[in-house]
Simulated scan of single mutants.
Amino acid sequence: MSVSPRIAVVGPGAIGTTVAAALHETGRTPLLCGRTPREGLELDGPTGRIAVPGPVRTDPASVDGPLDLVFLAVKATQVPAAAPWLTSLCGPDTVVCVLQNGVEQEEIVSARVAARAVVPSVVWFPAQAQPDGSVWLRAEARLTLPDLPAARPIGEALHGSLCSIELAADFTSLAWRKLLQNAAAGLMALTGRRAGMYRRADVGALTLAYLRECLAIARAEGARLGDEVPQEILDGFRAMPADLGTSILADREAGRPLEWDIRNGVIARKGRARGIPTPISEVVVPLLAATSDE
Score class of each variant (00 low, 15 high):
G54T: 01
L43C: 09
W260P: 10
G13S: 07
G275T: 02
L225S: 07
A73D: 06
R28Y: 06
L99D: 11
N182I: 06
V103Q: 10
R49M: 03
D202M: 13
L72Q: 06
W124P: 03
S161I: 01
P279T: 05
R152Q: 14
G275R: 09
R212D: 15
R212P: 05
E106I: 10
A254H: 11
V56E: 13
G54C: 02
G222L: 04
A268W: 03
A139T: 00
S110D: 02
C33T: 11
E213N: 12
P66I: 07
L69C: 04
G155S: 06
K75W: 04
A20G: 02
T18M: 12
E259M: 11
G160H: 10
R6C: 03
W124D: 14
L174W: 11
R28K: 13
L180K: 09
P126F: 06
I248T: 13
A185S: 15
A195V: 02
V119L: 14
L206V: 09
L72M: 03
A216D: 14
P153F: 07
Q78D: 15
P12M: 05
E104D: 15
R57P: 02
R193Y: 05
A111D: 02
S110P: 12
G40E: 00
L211V: 06
V98S: 12
P126L: 04
I248C: 08
L143C: 06
I15P: 06
G133P: 10
L23W: 10
D227R: 04
A168T: 05
E106N: 07
P286E: 07
P126R: 05
E294Q: 15
A175N: 13
R256S: 03
C97M: 12
V113L: 08
A61G: 13
A290P: 08
A73P: 11
E107A: 14
T172S: 12
V10Q: 12
E259H: 11
G222Q: 09
S121M: 08
A117F: 04
L69H: 04
R138H: 13
G54R: 01
S161R: 09
V123K: 00
G16C: 07
L143S: 08
M240W: 00
R138S: 14
I233S: 04
V79L: 14
G271E: 03
L148R: 04
Q100G: 06
V118E: 07
W176T: 08
S88F: 01
K178C: 01
G226M: 08
A273V: 03
T26P: 10
G16Q: 07
P279A: 10
L174S: 11
P37N: 10
L287E: 14
P55N: 09
L67A: 03
W85Q: 11
P131F: 01
E228G: 11
A114I: 01
T36E: 14
A183F: 11
R263F: 00
S110Y: 00
I276D: 10
T246M: 14
A189F: 08
S2R: 15
E253R: 13
G45Q: 09
